[in-house]
């Protein structure tokens, strides 16, 4: 495996090579399977089954910041009942794969949001719920303490506008995320990332 560094002592910088990360055993199988005739078909079928499972069991981190958290709670409660589409709230980021940033995020809170996101295992997704989390919303102008959009600290997949959004709007955002997850090249992800020269897929 090449490290991309010039060999010691030559003094001449080597041709920059795309950095190739070590493939895991699963990714190696995927790569081999992908090169075989008909392997792509098997891979895609397995992939869609896996993606269906992942999309049907999105576990969000219960992470209420402000007003939108109340509507998020309402979405988990009896009338809208997010459990029926497999969205079960988890209290710790280690068990979560979706972060719903509900409400305005202050500059004091921003590093904590980032740390919680980093504590979540990959693949992870972020829904920005409400105007304040999306871009600061009502707190955009004349304000010194609110972050102008939570996408300044974490990458956001789906934006749900509203102040606060109805629980239905949040469910619609989650369904939209499910659609995106279903289309993801989940198995090829690692191989693709390695070929791109980027370590760790996102």
């Amino acid at each position: 495996m090449s490290t991309g560094m010039p060999p010691a002592g030559t003094g001449v910088p080597a041709e920059p090579q795309p950095r190739r990360t070590q493939l895991g055993p699963l990714a190696q199988v995927v790569e081999v399977l992908d090169s075989l005739p008909g392997g792509g078909l098997i891979l895609t079928t397995v992939e869609s089954a896996l993606n269906w499972g992942r999309a049907s069991s999105l576990w969000p981190l219960t992470f209420g910041l402000a007003c939108c958290a109340i509507e998020m709670m309402a979405a988990f409660a009896s009338r809208f009942d997010l459990d029926r589409i497999g969205v079960i709230p988890r209290a710790t980021p280690r068990q979560a794969d979706l972060m719903i940033v509900a409400g305005r995020c202050s500059i004091k809170m921003a590093p904590i949001v980032r740390r919680l996101w980093e504590q979540m295992p990959e693949p992870r997704y972020v829904i920005s719920m409400g105007s304040c989390a999306t871009c600061g919303g009502p707190f955009f102008y004349d304000n010194y303490s609110i972050l102008k959009g939570v996408d300044q600290v974490v990458p956001v997949d789906v934006y749900v506008p509203g102040c606060p959004p109805r629980p239905e709007a949040l469910i619609e955002g989650i369904l939209k995320l499910q659609e995106r997850i279903k289309k993801e090249p989940f198995l090829r992800r690692q191989a693709l990332a390695a070929l791109d020269g980027r370590a760790g897929a996102r």
Binding site: T134, C135, G149, D151, V156, D157, V158, Y159, V160, P161, G162, P165, R166, E168, A169, E172, G173, K176, R180
Partner: peptide, 12 residues
């Protein structure tokens, strides 16, 4: 109409 979530903020 409230179903307005989007993948891209620019679309808002």
């Amino acid at each position: 109409h409230y179903e307005t979530s989007t993948y891209n903020r620019a679309r808002l």
